[in-house]
Nucleic acid binder design. Structure first.
Lengths: 197, 197
DNA sequence: TAGGCTACCAAGCTAGCGCTTGGGTCGGGA
DNA sequence: TCCCGACCCAAGCGCTAGCTTGGTAGCCTA
């Protein structure tokens, strides 16, 4: 069986096939026989590539989170003003949501369950790092006078985070709006509000 | 077995017990043996009250949706101006989220899956009615000059809807914020925006 | 006090789950 | 030519899922 560090095209393709099924039907509702069928292979043959169904999911999620946190780090290091940084964080999030739709969907839907598994303890850590990043930007924006002071950054963070990521439920990369257009629409709503001036 | 229209205290209690488990672990991951254990009964005994696990879920969801749509109807019929109506819709939604936490959670998490089952076709219909209600208010607000014209009401609706309902993931009725306080915090963000004036 | 109703138990059925085992095929390097 | 590694099949194991069946204890009413 190929190891994690020893990449294989077939292995990567199988992860993607499984990812689509996980996203559509849920991780637990997707059976190894489904995955095998979709890949044109008997279910047992999957165990040549992976030692468990969990491993397939792990590969999907950890590689996604690695990339996302990397992108966040780059944005923060750029050191723009808080409003611009927040804007870039939102844009990057919507882009990741379009490029890794399956991974994001699974993460949203199975988060509570997966966190109970020791193997996926890193999900909590990643989530905490995302949280720190966003809240720091919000606090900076308040201190700098860019953002309103009568907002609790913790509550605001949860709203921003949730309303961005939950869009994965209906966003389609081949739909009428691109990820960046959607991000800008969202940012306009968040920054300027709904009320006519 | 008691029928749907023939209420039974025991039956209602069992629905609530099951609802908590469905919300915490997911509908499919909750077994009839779990439900039986939580109710202090053997799993087979549940089939005295319900003819299937699906029936338990159906009872939970349909009664919740009935109540929600009823509340929405009352608010719209009151005929306030669009901003006030939207405010009341948001408040009512947050309240329903606190009073029917389990039902909302299940609906959010299993929506995609349940819509594939013929039995739960009414979920799509209810969703459509909610959609019509909100979008009508948004359009009215734009026409009346209360809301900004450069917003697509369809996209805005999805943001509002998602960011309200997704709060069920972290909202606790016994937490620091009441449902109305949370609604007001949210409304301030939506109406006035994040940017300092 | 007999009969029926509500609520439950004890036991087990079938289907399908994740995963294992032993073996087969085929292309590339020595 | 020989063999190794990548890849896959066929069959089935142990287990748990939702659900069924036949029976019973206690209560209410006539």
């Amino acid at each position: 069986m190929p190891a994690r560090g020893k990449p294989s095209q077939r292995r990567d393709a199988l992860v993607q096939i499984a990812a689509e099924l996980f996203a559509e039907q849920g991780y637990r509702a997707t059976t190894v026989r489904h995955i095998g069928d979709a890949a044109g292979v008997l279910s047992g043959s999957l165990y040549h590539h992976f030692d468990s169904k969990e491993t397939i999911l792990d590969e999907l999620l950890s590689s996604y989170l690695e990339e996302l946190l990397d992108t966040y780090g780059t944005i923060v290091k750029a050191g723009d003003d808080p409003a611009a940084t927040l804007r870039e964080l939102v844009r990057a999030s919507f882009r990741s949501l379009s490029e890794h739709r399956a991974a994001v969907t699974v993460l949203q839907n199975e988060r509570n369950y997966l966190r109970t598994l020791p193997r996926f303890g890193y999900l909590t850590k990643s989530e905490e790092e995302v949280r720190r990043t966003w809240i720091a930007v919000l606090r900076d924006g308040i201190s700098a006078g860019d953002f309103r002071k009568d907002q609790d950054p913790v509550v605001t963070y949860r709203f921003l985070r949730d309303s961005v990521w939950v869009a994965v439920r209906w966003f389609r990369a081949d739909g009428p709006l691109s990820a960046d257009e959607l991000a800008d629409h969202y940012l306009a709503l968040i920054f300027e509000g709904l009320r006519a001036s």
